[in-house]
Design a binder for these strands. Sequence first.
DNA 1: GTTTAATATTGTAATGGTTACAAATATGAG
DNA 2: CTCATATTTGTAACCATTACAATATTAAAC
Lengths: 153, 153
Amino acid sequence: MVTNMRAQTKLREKTDKPWNLDEIGQFLGQQGIRPSFHRLKIFEYLINERTHPTADEIYEVLKKEIPAISRATVYNTLRLFFDRKIVQVLNIEKNEARYDATLTWHGHFKCLLCGQVYDVEIESLELSGLDNYQVLEKHLDLKGLCPSCSHKK
Amino acid sequence: MVTNMRAQTKLREKTDKPWNLDEIGQFLGQQGIRPSFHRLKIFEYLINERTHPTADEIYEVLKKEIPAISRATVYNTLRLFFDRKIVQVLNIEKNEARYDATLTWHGHFKCLLCGQVYDVEIESLELSGLDNYQVLEKHLDLKGLCPSCSHKK
DNA sequence: GTTTAATATTGTAATGGTTACAAATATGAG
DNA sequence: CTCATATTTGTAACCATTACAATATTAAAC
């Protein structure tokens, strides 16, 4: 028997309307997460920038606006979001966890030169040998050279 | 345009004949890797056990037979094998790198309870949006509960 | 068989992302 | 306002991996 998994929805586009803080607060509340200012800003960064940042990148960016924020809060909050299943953790490289608030099924491509992570649309995927396995997470990670780094070469 | 990737070959079966040290030595030689005893034993473990071990698991097992072996040698050797492209590194979890000497295209399933890593056959995979991307590595990682751990629950 | 240069291995210190934890702060109910 | 609870902070600890310098082994040349 073969398990057939298809992309259900379109990935978010750069042109999609960004979420505002009110919407984010409402969303976090629905998920049983009290919408503190830090949590709002961290989720806002993830959902609107969609650059698959590391915890440290989020910390560095938010520190400009919220100088008192601490690294521990960023890590705590990201773990909370993951536990509540509103973000996924990407372990493309073993020395850096990246975070993604887009939960629709898609893959990732990391450029080995510039380090950028791109979304990849998965048209279809068929697996076999998974009868009686309970699949809770799926990750498709590609590595290589992105178009602009291919040229540099 | 859609990139279509299919499994080219069957995965190794448990019943396949294990490699002996002579064959491994010959193989390493062909790859330009001098077949020292430690390298032979590390590759033997990877190719014949196929349990996707961590560096430390390999170290602990080989230490019984080669008490003088050091962790650094295991790490050095695994990195050498990866650089020479005869093993792949699995970053299913960010806190542990696992090694796999099977290079035919297949996925991995890690059980969140017992921690075991199983091979998954990929019947087909279609991706889009990768024009002009140069794909050098592909990883499909699943997590969940394996059949026996599903029952325990 | 020695010498010599190159390669492999070892033990340990350092690295760096992440987590643990206890203290300090903020929040919300009564 | 006060208390109990939840959040945030700063720092120390953790731990897999890497760096590195010293030692040992190998292979080739003599």
